[in-house]
Design a protein around this nucleic acid. Structure first.
Lengths: 365, 365
DNA sequence: GTATGTAAGTTATCCCGCCTAACATAAAGC
DNA sequence: GCTTTATGTTAGGCGGGATAACTTACATAC
């Protein structure tokens, strides 16, 4: 717990204004005052300070024909800043993008992931520099979604895929780039994207199925961090069942061994009939549902979002997952649990990384 | 999100001071200033206002022999207020107590739980009134731990054991008692007691094994609420396994059917040999470990605390739980997971209810 | 036993942030 | 044209924290 100063109130109220504008779009100062409970006087001051910082601008006169002085609408200067985001979770590519404050991808840049782990940092810096240089308006910050265990200061404690351990990614990028840098686990970024742009509820899990398997969780609208920054690392939870596969980690029946994309492709490839393929996906969904049931019950989640190849996760898989979940939890509470595929597609980590910047720099999400 | 005022800063800083004193014991104003980062001037004002409200008092001069004016120690007026707590989770008794601000039980009162659900409220009010009347110093508030699903305004949405549905417990008690009232689920109260008095970490689960089975979770030091206020309701998660029992809810293999106290007693009673009894407890622990493994991994918990009959949960059971947990999660992260019995005993809910009052009224925990 | 140094706590004054009250501005309605 | 209604601004006040300078009270050195 930290001391509080009067000026902290100012900072929070500025964020509150930006938040309202971000969600509701253009409003008048008087509207904002009513919405927030602050007075019109204070709101005018707040808006003036935000206009000075180029975060907000006046966009015109309200169309509403009614008695009284017409309202001057203000809105976030959505073209006044850009966000740069980088996704390090790709198996073979570094994906970068410039996004608007609304989270729309404006430009995209992809470069091969260097084979040597020592070169990944320089490649990331170079990519970020190119993206930042391509912007003609100020860049609010850089958000990075990376695989691995990442602490709250952006140190990648462990990322076997890339070969990092104890890599001080955030501070290294910060030193090289002169913009605010935020680094988080890719699945944690993904769940932020899903909440802000996918309309998710405040208690939700995003399960990322790729070369590995990870999850990002939100409880009460806040990201779950975990005691050792390893929340969501459910890839090596074991699930029993017929034909449980051996995992690279040595155990038998790890969730990742059941239903990572390579594992699924492997078993689909050795399936001869269409029926057999359906059975493989059905079984994989069941295994996920079995592993998630205790989590759904313990966290009282209402929504499970899947992020990964739609052809694998879309139909049978998702249905088997939700059926298993419902069968293995208490009906009255978890009957309305939904399992759906993310609509964010391959940009989910990039957009989530952008949310990290929005939320840290503007206090908006 | 709410607007912030300068006076909110004051309120938070007052809580900050109380928090330091609560945790560290008596300190001088200068110590508090250094610890909090506020100036000595501001700290003197804060302490003065807390002394005016009888929350804090001067306790003497620092023993330290050193140059400079001797420090005047101040401390929370631990005898200036009492907390009243009631535990509704007993199978046949209403348990109430008066506690000190340190969470020590000073007096205890137990009355039979009325059979008719309509009489439980009046019995609770009567018990609270007797406890409040027995105090010769002001009562800070009443904390109630109740079974069931309870929303954040203290409405018991559903409590099958008592027969309540939509009972506005907090506001009904509030109307009758003229002290602040806080109501929460018993397991959620329990985990608060464990954190504040049991030295638990910030990411922990307390599993209550009694006539039913429930859990209270803390993530990042904050209680987990859940989308429908049902976080921790893991009693009806199903776990497969040989001899899976049928649950009262209709499903087969519910955790509660495996290892609630009546279920365990049932199976222990029909065991002939000591060896068989050990096997029953071992199996029950395994089932709990299996159900908790995904939760431990997803939340990155480091600590599982069991609350219930020590003779059942103490030895074989806890060991089987931790062994199963370790076997079913990823070694590097969860090798140091500990499973232990709570040291709070039967007072865990009462003390947790007291923490609710401390935390709501004083901002301390 | 007096001078010096050190640390606690107080007094005076300032800035910052929000508030209320009053006013200027600009439209609609009669 | 006057009233009504609503937006936004100006003026003045209050609360909360900061800095600077002071008083108080001890230990220590000479």
């Amino acid at each position: 717990m930290m001391k509080s100063l009067p000026q902290d109130a100012r900072e929070r109220n500025r964020s509150l204004v930006l938040q309202k504008l971000f969600r509701r779009g253009a409003m008048s100062r008087a509207d904002l005052a009513r919405e927030t409970g602050l007075t019109r006087v204070t709101m005018s001051e707040l808006v003036a300070s935000l206009i000075d910082d180029h975060y907000v601008h006046e966009v015109g006169i309200s169309e509403l024909r009614r008695p009284g002085k017409p309202a001057v609408l203000v809105d976030i200067a959505r073209d006044g800043h850009r966000i740069v985001a980088i996704d390090l979770s790709g198996a073979s590519m570094l994906a970068g993008a410039v996004l608007s404050l609304d989270g729309d991808v404006l430009t995209r840049l992809r470069v091969p992931l260097p084979e040597r782990s020592t070169e990944v940092l320089t490649a990331t810096i170079a990519l970020a520099q190119r993206l930042i240089a391509s912007c003609d308006v100020p860049v609010l910050g850089l958000g990075v979604g990376s695989p691995g265990i990442i602490d709250d200061r952006g140190v990648v404690l462990a990322a076997p895929n890339i070969g990092w351990g104890g890599m001080e990614l955030q501070s290294r990028l910060s030193d090289a780039l002169a913009v605010p840098v935020l680094v988080a686990n890719d699945a944690n970024a993904a769940v932020l994207a899903e909440r802000t742009f996918g309309g998710s509820q405040d208690d939700v899990v995003v399960v990322r199925v790729g070369s590995g398997l990870g999850a990002g969780l939100l409880t009460g609208g806040r990201p779950l961090r975990g005691g050792r920054y390893a929340a969501g690392e459910i890839g090596h939870v074991t699930v029993d069942g017929e034909g449980a596969p051996r995992c690279a980690c040595g155990k038998v029946g790890c969730l990742e061994a059941w239903l990572s994309v390579p594992a699924l492709h492997g078993r689909l490839g050795s399936s001869s009939s269409e029926q057999e393929k359906v059975a493989v996906l059905h079984q994989a969904g069941e295994r996920l549902g079995t592993a998630l049931a205790p989590v759904v019950a313990a966290l009282d989640l209402a929504e499970i979002v899947l992020s990964g190849p739609p052809d694998l996760l879309g139909g049978v898989f998702a249905r088997a997952t939700v059926d298993t979940l419902r069968a293995r939890t208490l009906a009255p509470f978890h009957d309305d649990v939904s399992v759906r595929l993310s609509e964010q597609g391959d940009d989910i980590v990039l957009r989530g990384a952008a949310v990290m910047v929005l939320s840290s720099v503007l206090g908006v999400s």
